[in-house]
Design a protein around this nucleic acid. Structure first.
Length: 285
DNA sequence: AACCAGGACACAA
DNA sequence: TTGTGTCATGGT
């Protein structure tokens, strides 16, 4: 393919790349030429899946692949996770419909910024906004010869010096001041994202809630998709629909009640269960 | 053409 | 604590 780059074959089982990369946890993966392309950190990468392998290809030489193993969480034993799900009808249906669905481990800042931009937006629109942001303010990364230009996710230091108007021009609307203020707080070290994964869940959530535009739902997304807290359970409109229609049919249950239910019912890997429900209801509704 | 989208926030009651 | 309007933009 590209003689300058590297290729690596990972042995995997129960890993559905398409489901994982399009399930609304990451917003920068695109399917092209038979593979999934994105930027992880500052590296362009293309992933293809065979029966029992994932083939990774980079544009630059790579000596160690732990950055990608970590991102894809290749060490996770999925059947072991699924075995902890509650044994009820909705979960059985979701598991059956989402074989191989995984959670990623994303960069905290990119994840936080992306989900600040996600509120009351459809996934396709979030992808568009994030795409514009990277294209306009991100550092260019090396791509295979002849490939279109690709950019890294912009740093918070870079975004902190961008005007409100420039951000709104990326179609993010009222979310622009939230993103800008968040970037500035990070520059000033009012909140530090590093090592947040070592803190207790509630403390880590408390730190994330300090950012403007971040409430419980977005905080839980970052806790789950970036910091790897296995019980974080973001409840958005889709998960709310899933919980209402699958667990409380024909009863008008309030969001607060659903959140309490989610914290007690889904076990030590509730976050994974949540992702299965999310992906499941979006397929059947 | 209405309705809705991986919400958060200020403000009522 | 629980409910309502508002914010910006575009897909379905």
């Amino acid at each position: 393919m590209n003689p300058e780059g590297s290729q690596k074959i990972f042995d995997v089982s129960e890993y559905d790349l398409a489901a994982t990369l399009t399930s609304g946890q990451a917003f920068r993966w695109r399917f092209r030429d038979g593979g999934w392309e994105s930027v992880v950190g500052s590296r362009w990468v293309r992933l293809r899946e065979n029966k029992k392998t994932i083939i990774a290809e980079t544009a630059l030489p790579v000596s160690a692949w732990n950055w990608l193993r970590d991102y894809l969480r290749l060490d996770v034993d999925l059947p072991e996770i699924i075995a902890t799900f509650p044994d009820d009808e909705p979960m059985r249906a979701a598991i059956k419909a989402c074989r191989g669905l995984r959670l990623l481990r994303q960069n905290p800042w990119e994840c936080l910024a992306s989900f600040i931009l996600s509120s009351t937006k459809q996934i396709v629109q979030i992808e568009q906004i994030v795409g514009l942001l990277c294209e306009r303010f991100g550092q260019p990364v090396t791509v295979p010869t002849g490939h279109e230009r690709v950019f890294a996710f912009p740093t918070f230091a870079r975004l902190a010096q961008i005007s409100d108007a420039e951000l709104r021009a990326c179609k993010m609307g009222f979310r622009a001041p939230y993103l800008l203020a968040t970037a500035k707080m990070l520059v000033n070290k009012e909140v530090v994202l590093e090592n947040l994964h070592r803190r207790p869940l509630d403390e880590a959530r408390g730190e994330l809630l300090k950012f403007p535009g971040v409430g419980n739902k977005i905080a839980d997304c970052v806790l789950l998709f970036a910091f790897g807290f296995p019980t974080a359970f973001p409840v958005d409109v889709w998960v709310m629909k899933a919980l209402r229609e699958l667990y409380f049919p024909k009863r008008r249950v309030k969001l607060n009640r659903l959140q309490k239910f989610s914290q007690t019912h889904f076990g030590p890997n509730a976050g994974y269960a949540q992702q299965y429900l999310f992906h499941y209801v979006r397929k059947i509704l």
